[in-house]
Computed example of a mutant assay.
Amino acid sequence: MKVFAVAGYSGSGKTTLLEKLLPQMTARGLRVSVIKHTHHDFDIDRPGKDSFRHRQAGAGEVLLASSSRWVLMNELRGAREPSLAEYLARFSPCDLVLVEGFKDEAVPTLEVYRPANGKPPLWPAHRQIVGVASDQPLPPGFPAGLVALDLNDTAAIVGYILDTVELRGASHAVF
């Protein structure tokens, strides 16, 4: 299983970019999964539902299953957040896991950078960033070792990611 991350500040377009990349990757015959990291508390459950009631009653994990999908909810209850490696170990086999967030993990990362957000780029402080996708020319001082990509050229970004994780020539993929 190969891993590649997409990082950037809130509002930079990370989710929108992944939404555009996923169909192009799966059309090539790749099985792709996604981990979305958030710094906010979230809940996919609703008060009153059986699974919510089970968690509220103290269940450490609740697996919700149907003929269409299943989800495993794990309550940390004060325990430390698992590492990216621990999350990855829970995935079913796949060709590629795209990670949104986890900008401090040592995996190849593409920064989505929009100067209009008024935030500084991440790449100077994060050595795992191997490329930057932007909708504007990159600022002075952009290192020669980083790849600059047009944020709107999703085909080029797909090719770059697959080359980086050495999946472009995968025998099961159709190019």
Rank of each mutant, 00 (worst) to 15 (best):
R90D: 11
E75T: 04
C94A: 14
L122E: 02
T16D: 05
Q24L: 15
G11R: 07
R90G: 06
I35K: 06
A156G: 01
A156W: 01
G78N: 10
F175V: 14
V62D: 06
H126M: 13
R127C: 04
A144T: 14
K20M: 06
I157T: 04
A155F: 03
A116W: 02
M25D: 06
K49D: 11
K14A: 11
D43A: 04
A79C: 10
V132Q: 02
H40R: 09
K20L: 06
S51G: 03
G60P: 04
L64A: 15
H37S: 12
P139M: 08
A57V: 08
K119P: 03
V62G: 04
P121Q: 06
P47C: 00
G8V: 12
C94I: 12
L98Y: 01
V165A: 13
S134A: 10
V97I: 15
R168N: 14
A57H: 05
S68P: 01
E100D: 05
V165R: 11
R69S: 14
L17D: 02
V99I: 12
P124Y: 03
S66P: 03
A173V: 00
E75S: 12
Q56M: 15
Y87H: 10
Y87G: 00
L84D: 10
R168H: 07
L110V: 02
R28H: 09
P120R: 11
G13E: 03
G101M: 05
P137T: 13
W123D: 01
Q136T: 15
R114T: 08
G159A: 15
T109E: 00
G48V: 09
D104L: 09
E81K: 14
G29K: 07
Y113A: 05
V107Q: 01
I44F: 13
E111R: 00
G48S: 13
G58I: 05
L18P: 00
A57K: 08
E86N: 12
L146M: 14
G131T: 07
S134N: 11
A59G: 09
S92P: 11
V147F: 03
G60L: 06
R28D: 00
V62T: 15
W70K: 09
V130Q: 04
D135Y: 04
K2P: 01
K103I: 05
S67E: 12
F4E: 00
S92T: 15
K20I: 00
V97R: 12
F142S: 07
D104I: 02
S10P: 03
G29C: 08
T154Y: 04
D150V: 08
D43E: 13
A156K: 13
R168T: 13
D150L: 04
Y9A: 09
L149E: 12
S92G: 13
F175Q: 09
H54L: 15
T15F: 07
A79F: 10
K103A: 08
Q24K: 15
H126A: 14
V99M: 02
F42W: 06
L167N: 06
L72F: 01
Q136N: 08
S10N: 04
P23Y: 15
A59V: 02
P143Q: 11
G169L: 07
